[in-house]
Amino acid sequence: MASAGRGVTAPGNSLGRSRPRYGETAVKVLLLAAALVSIATTVGIVGALIEPTIKFFGEVSVFEFFASTDWAPLFSPPAFGVIPVVTNTLIITLIAILVAVPLGLAAAIYLSEYATARVRKALKPILEVLAGIPTVALGFFALTLVSPFVRSWWPFPMEAKNGLVAGLIVGMMIIPIVASLSEDAMSAVPGGLREGAYALGSSRMIVSLRVVFPAALSGIIAAVILAISRAAGETMIVVIAAGSNPTFTVNPGKEMPTMASFIAQAGSGDLPVGSIAYDTIFAVGSLLFALTFAMNFISARFVRRFREVYE
């Protein structure tokens, strides 16, 4: 009686797809679209930058732009030597990195290798909240509290708005980026490597510096690169605390407007669209974009060369 039913397949039951799965296709298209949005944004930015930049270089020679150290594009007569704002950007970024990398890495090593689970659980969210402070608030903090304090200690003449204080506060702003991402990278290093190192008679410091740190290096460098990009492009703190008078100098006691702060200051004025001053904004924007892109590109290659792959 049972044998009648055994082995009988329902009519039309084959291994082919019984009905189309539209949902699957829709999800795939949706996900692809989401991925494309960010790419499209980048392409769009580049596209928007190119046209006014080309127009700018139709009126201002490339040589003047890159070789002159006189920057006064909004004045009459205008001067278009971009070097001062570029060096200012580099100096402020350098100061910020000098602040953020040692402090951020020390914090990361502490959280990953020294802190107990409880301390880590309490500290890390606080650190990440720091990353959420609006930079306009940090800018006023720099100008009203930090600047007077630093000026009272600085042995040389220093303007109220200056590159040093702006750099210090930009550095503070990027500490959480360095610390948090580096900590993630170090925590991801397999515990077995630590055990192996401890079992050979390593102190905690040796384990941190000679085993965990090198193993996490690619992640740490990625964190630093991201931090550098953020520092180089930081605008609000620099607008408020670094002033707007671009002189070609390496003295961080002077006002030090950067490429980003120039864009913000010029862009918030009422420049007529299509004027040479207006196009200058895009020329500087292109340069900032190119510099950041080049830096990311070079450091990505650097990371690939030096990282220790642990799995």
Binding site: P190, G192, L193, E195, G196, A199, A215
Partner: peptide, 10 residues
């Protein structure tokens, strides 16, 4: 000490 899972440094 030698561990269960080989753990050479990278």
């Amino acid at each position: 000490m030698v561990f269960q899972k080989p753990n050479p440094f990278p």
